[in-house]
């Protein structure tokens, strides 16, 4: 325990974006987005091309916003030194590769080194992250021998290794089988009490079961933000969809067009 860990926070929400604009290639993928996310699990929903990945990349500070502002943990991640803020972030990109000669442990260890963790803490933190991602039995296997879902879990372990206060997961459930999905939701629930987790997904059921908050995006704009219950209440029987959430989803997206 250090003084920094127990110090009271001086910001209202972990992530705050005002009039955010981010370019992806020539397109303005995130356009005039206002968003405020606190502790909890936030599911970002939206059709393909809604700007979910670009938004997460911008929150992970790998893309520079071309307009508006972002505040992470009360600080603006501009300027030349992104290091202090990045140490508080865990990021799982939508697609990520790995060096084929790495084992799961080496992969997470290398990421821990890149995250500038103190050398003495790395081995234990790596083991704990691997345990949390449920890869303990495969920790010393080469990544190239693992299935797609297991590689995804190695990615999750990598994101957790530095105990981030902001955890950004881009499509984390792709390639997971139903049992692993349930386990993943359990992990999200265990994080939701002290971490600001942002999960992008296009699967409505992911949101229904694990998220405390839903953010609906369309064409780079915010369409809706609220609890899964409010999203479900927005739909009526006449809307397309098999569950109340899906009906709410199509109702809100239909209204926005």
């Amino acid at each position: 325990m250090s003084a920094a860990e127990t110090a009271p926070t001086t910001y209202a929400s972990e992530i705050r974006a005002v009039g955010l604009r981010v370019r992806a290639g020539r397109r303005m993928a995130v356009n005039e987005l206002d968003l405020s996310l606190g502790i909890g699990v936030h599911g970002i929903l939206g059709p393909n091309g809604a700007g979910k990945t670009t938004l997460i990349r911008c929150l992970a500070t790998v893309l520079r916003p071309s307009g508006g502002s972002v505040e992470l943990l009360g600080r603006k991640p501009g300027g030349t030194d992104l290091r202090p803020i990045r140490r508080e972030i865990g990021y799982l990109p939508q697609q990520f590769g790995f060096y084929s000669r790495f084992t799961v442990r080496e992969f997470v260890e290398y990421m821990a080194w890149l995250k500038e963790m103190p050398k003495a803490e790395i081995p234990e933190a790596v083991q704990r992250a691997i345990d949390r991602a449920d890869l303990t039995s495969r920790a010393d296997d080469k990544l190239k021998t693992l299935s797609g879902g297991m590689v995804r879990r190695a990615g999750i372990a990598q994101a957790l290794v530095n105990n981030p206060r902001i955890l950004l997961l881009d499509e984390p459930t792709v390639g997971l089988d139903p049992a692993q999905r349930m386990q993943f939701r359990e992990l999200l629930r265990s994080l939701s009490s002290d971490t600001c987790v942002v999960v992008s997904t296009h699967l409505v059921e992911d949101v229904a079961n694990a998220c405390t908050d839903v953010v609906l995006m369309r064409e780079g704009r915010l369409v809706f933000q609220g609890t899964p219950e409010t999203l479900a209440a927005a739909g009526s029987e006449s809307e397309a969809g098999d569950s109340p959430l899906e009906r709410g989803y199509s109702a809100l997206l239909g209204r926005a067009s």
Binding site: R86, R87, L114, E116
Partner: peptide
């Protein structure tokens, strides 16, 4: 050529 490029570029040590 670097498969971990995005992971590396998003880490504190990147730069």
């Amino acid at each position: 050529a670097d498969p971990m490029y995005e992971l590396v570029a998003g880490s504190p040590r990147a730069g």
